[in-house]
Design a binder for these strands. Structure first.
Length: 500
RNA sequence: GGUCCUGUGGCCGAGUGGCUAGGCAGAGCUCUGCAAAAGCUCCUACAGCGGUUCGAAUCCGCUCGGGACCUCCA
């Protein structure tokens, strides 16, 4: 069995994955801030790490997957006012902060279900771990790496950098940070501009607030991940994932905090997915080019030509390696849609092939084809083991599509492939496409199409009855009944139907 | 300004120095009452200029273009 290799952002190279505790994997992924609706960009990390989670499990690991919900808004250091994003939005929508947070949390969960992502093992909330965060801050103060100023607590980056490598993960040079960071107002409290907040004193109008040793306030952003990761995964764990944009300062700061508190580097393998861009630009609130997931699924956004199925999006994302930027366009998404449809149809056809009838009892008659199939299937694990190269996995399955179609249509003679080869192919497709990549079919589901089909059948039946072709008429009604649809003749020749 | 990534055919995208993925679109043919689907075939690219090498999309240098991070961000 080949080894799994993961690109580690910390060392900037692919490394053989060896879990801390044999057979077990601890994985932490930065979750969403639920101050607003999830957008297309959010789909990337959660789908990426869902595949990582699934794959590790199929390798036999017992995985504890922790993904937080950031529901305690952090301050925005823009200009003078340090405002709480969540509190601000809540006022805007006339909602209680927790009401708002729950609304968007539910929406997030709903979207994740659409994408067929597995729920994490633990999904801790920042507000539920204030105690742990305060505890960690106290440790940092006691260790001399944090200081309090007027009810707020900051991490002393300069002091940390004196004995540790602050900037190792993000490739930042501390001296440059110290001199380059731009001047911001309202930060007189800090000893140095690079210091980041662990705890912020809450202004009177601030709605989200907690009691702390330093007065009433709320936690900084970085501390929540450190506190929750430590609590659920221990002082050191295997994998930490998130978007590349979180490298600095978020993950860099996480390392600093945890290193001081736990006396060791918290994470062994850092994984970062790249961004989804739209027209070459990163999608983000500041760029005003955000496509929300609800808009994506319904097609209700000026940039969208049509609605896109969640599976199309999932497939679209998996067709690219997670470390590359992925540019969104209608053309690209529609290509993905067609591609997935073709792949899935072939997969369904394969399931319908009668192995006993069409497969040869012993070896298939077409040895070359058998070898091709076995090679294509055999390569797949090595692709996944090579830093989760889902794009290559999909490419190989696409090469099987014509093989399957040809057998199904009879272009390839029956018996070319043995029954066991066909079965093997089917099992592998189920395993990789469904279990590992988490893909599903794109059933149209909606009643619109069914409605149209029924109208068509009703029309045909009316015509048949018009020429007294009751054999056809009865056939339609009986066959529909057998699939659970009751067709009733109303007075005046109209027909109605309902699903039993 | 600093740090880093990137530039592949009409479009999206794999690519570990040699055997030059895959998808979408397009063209032709086969099948077909029509259409669709499907099958077969074709279109074969690596920003530019140098260099290393028997051999480079892949390594090195320069030029040009695009992007990310340095601020909340997936």
């Amino acid at each position: 069995m080949a080894e799994l290799r993961i690109y580690n952002s910390l060392t900037r190279q692919k490394e053989v994955f060896t879990p801390l505790v044999p057979g077990h994997v601890g994985m932490y992924v930065c979750g969403p801030t639920v101050s607003g609706e999830s957008h297309l960009g959010h789909a990337r990390p959660y789908i990426t790490f869902d595949v990582v989670y699934r794959y590790l499990q199929t390798l036999g690991y017992k995985v504890r997957y922790v993904r937080n919900i950031t529901d305690a808004g952090h301050f925005e250091e823009e200009g003078r006012e340090a405002t709480d994003k969540i509190a601000e939005k809540a006022k805007l929508e006339q909602l209680e902060p927790m009401e708002l947070v729950h609304k968007y949390t539910r929406l997030f969960h709903w979207a994740m279900e659409q994408f067929n992502t597995l729920p994490p093992s633990v999904e801790p909330t920042a507000t539920g771990h204030i105690v742990e965060q305060i505890g960690m801050i106290e440790q940092l103060i006691a260790a001399g790496f944090a200081y309090e100023v007027q009810g707020s607590v900051y991490f002393d980056v300069k002091k940390y950098a004196a004995s540790y490598d602050y900037g190792k993960l993000s490739g930042r040079i501390i001296d440059e940070l110290l001199t380059t960071t731009r001047e911001l107002d309202g930060q007189e409290d800090k000893k140095d501009r690079t210091d980041f907040a662990l705890w912020k004193a809450a202004a009177p109008e601030h709605i989200m607030r907690w009691q702390s040793p330093w007065g009433v306030g709320y936690p900084g952003w970085h501390i929540e991940c450190s506190a929750m990761a430590t609590k659920y995964l221990g002082k050191q764990f295997d994998i930490h994932g998130g978007g590349m944009d979180l490298l600095f300062p978020h993950h860099e700061s996480e390392i600093a905090q945890s290193t001081i508190c736990n006396h060791q580097a918290p994470v062994r393998y850092w994984m970062h997915n790249n961004m989804i861009t739209i027209n070459g630009r990163k999608m983000g609130k500041s760029y005003n080019n955000v496509i929300r997931l609800t808009e994506l699924f319904s097609g209700s956004h000026p940039l969208l030509e049509k609605a896109y199925h969640p599976m199309t999006v999932r497939f679209f994302i998996l067709q690219t390696h997670y470390s590359s930027t992925l540019d969104f366009s209608n053309e690209a998404l529609q290509a993905a849609e067609k591609g997935l449809k073709r792949l899935w149809e072939a997969y369904q056809k394969l399931k319908k092939i009668d192995y006993v009838q069409k497969g040869a009892p012993g070896n298939g008659t077409d040895e070359a084809l058998t070898q091709t199939v076995n090679r294509l299937l055999g390569e797949v694990p090595s692709f996944m083991n090579d830093d989760f190269s889902t794009a290559k996995v999909l490419a190989n399955f696409f090469e099987l599509v014509p093989v399957i179609n040809a057998i199904y249509d009879g272009h390839t003679p029956a018996g070319a492939l043995s029954a066991s080869t066909l079965l093997h192919m089917q099992k592998e497709m189920t395993h990789w496409l469904e279990t590992v990549l988490g893909l599903q079919g794109m059933e149209e589901g909606g009643h619109d199409k069914l409605e149209q089909v029924m109208n068509l059948l009703i029309d045909i039946r009316k015509e048949a009855r018009g020429r007294k072709d009751f054999m056809t008429s009865d056939k339609i009604r009986d066959r529909l009944a057998s699939v659970g649809i009751q067709l009733k003749d109303e007075k005046g020749g109209e027909m109605t139907w309902r699903i039993d």
